[in-house]
């Protein structure tokens, strides 16, 4: 009933953008990084992608059916992206049930329990990632990562290696160029090849699917803070190198593909800048002082929680009104 009439306030602008178009555009933007991940970690990760995407789509269909919504909505690509992004932030050694449980949790609990596409508060893929972190701590928060295939140079002769952001122990020495291309960089499936991710991210910015302010202010804040915040004496040498921080971990994929999610981030430009800087601050704090090596997933989930409040506080002045904020409640 409520879906038959669409009532909204002016301005009414017709646009060629549709949900399907935007979603599949994001899938295209993610494709290079996904292809690189299969090169780096072998065909085993293809299984993670397939299980994750299939589970997300199947859960989407089931939820739509239970909620009495048109099943055609499952083709809008949103569940596909959720599954794909989830696979990209899992470790290459993640067993099949991690991607399965994660995808079901993302679509059923984080998205459909809140009302489906457009109503969710948290980014489904990242919330599922954090959920898996606590559900399967041994499988998810690794101290030892699978060794990727090299693009150039000789591979390290080890079975597993430490994360580039590990707080203890000597990580393999990685140059900025290695980090940029993901050459010999251990990490989550889709996060290591920064060049491919940047390519996709710039494509999305050029297509105006994402707002350039979020990646710029997110990465910029991490850069400035990791440069300025004092590192402890026992910290590894890279800890004070802002370029290393920007190029390692999940920052690039998070800043371009997850912090820019239209549903879970503020709608105004100022709000988005506040959101992005908050994310950057959290990443810097968690990497420098926290218990986890990486904080991108937490930072975005945490700031997603702030989104409704940010939207409320930075709402633009209503044309013709005098005060920029909503009128105060009369006592």
């Amino acid at each position: 009933m409520e879906n038959q009439l669409l009532v909204s306030s002016s301005p009414h602008v017709r646009d060629a953008d549709t949900i399907e178009k935007i979603m599949w555009c994001v899938v295209v933007a993610l494709a290079p990084a996904a292809a690189m991940s299969i090169y780096f970690f072998g065909f085993g990760v293809l299984k993670v992608y397939v299980i994750s995407i299939a589970a997300a789509e199947a859960t989407e269909l089931l939820c739509l059916r239970w909620r009495g919504k048109p099943l055609s909505r499952a083709a809008d690509g949103s569940a596909f992206i959720t599954g794909m992004l989830l696979a990209m932030v899992l470790p290459p050694s993640a067993p099949y049930y991690c991607s399965l449980v994660g995808a079901v949790f993302a679509v059923a609990v984080v998205k459909h329990a809140f009302g489906g596409l457009g109503c969710n508060i948290w980014n489904p893929a990242l919330a599922a990632r954090v959920f898996l972190q606590f559900a399967y701590p041994l499988r998810m928060s690794l101290s030892q990562w699978s060794v990727p295939r090299m693009l150039w140079g000789k591979a390290a002769e080890v079975a597993t290696m430490a994360s580039p952001l590990a707080k203890e122990g000597a990580a393999a020495p990685l140059s900025h160029l290695d980090l940029l291309f993901g050459n010999g960089v251990p990490g989550c499936i889709g996060e290591t090849c920064k060049v491919a991710l940047l390519l996709g991210g710039l494509y999305l910015i050029a297509r105006r699917v994402v707002d350039w302010r979020i990646p710029l202010f997110y990465i910029g804040t991490v850069f400035v803070l990791t440069w300025l915040l004092p590192a402890g004496h026992d910290a590894p040498a890279w800890a004070a190198d802002p370029f290393y921080h920007v190029l390692s971990g999940g920052l690039i994929i998070g800043a371009f593909f997850m912090a820019t999610d239209m549903v879970t981030t503020p709608v105004t430009r100022r709000g988005r800048i506040v959101f992005a800087m908050g994310c950057g601050l959290l990443v810097a704090l968690i990497r420098r002082y926290g218990g986890y090596p990486e904080g991108v997933a937490y930072s975005i989930i945490f700031m997603n929680t702030f989104t409704p409040l940010i939207d409320r506080w930075v709402c633009p002045r209503v044309y013709g009104s005098r005060t920029p904020r909503p009128a105060r409640r009369q006592a």
Partner: peptide, 28 residues
């Protein structure tokens, strides 16, 4: 929100997800 979850149930789901977000500070 699905009718069965409106009100308190979805609030508790929110609480759980918010608590997960706050766990990122563990060890700080």
């Amino acid at each position: 929100v699905p009718p069965a979850l409106r009100g308190v149930p979805i609030a508790f789901i929110c609480t759980g997800l918010m608590a997960m977000a706050f766990l990122g500070f563990a060890g700080m």
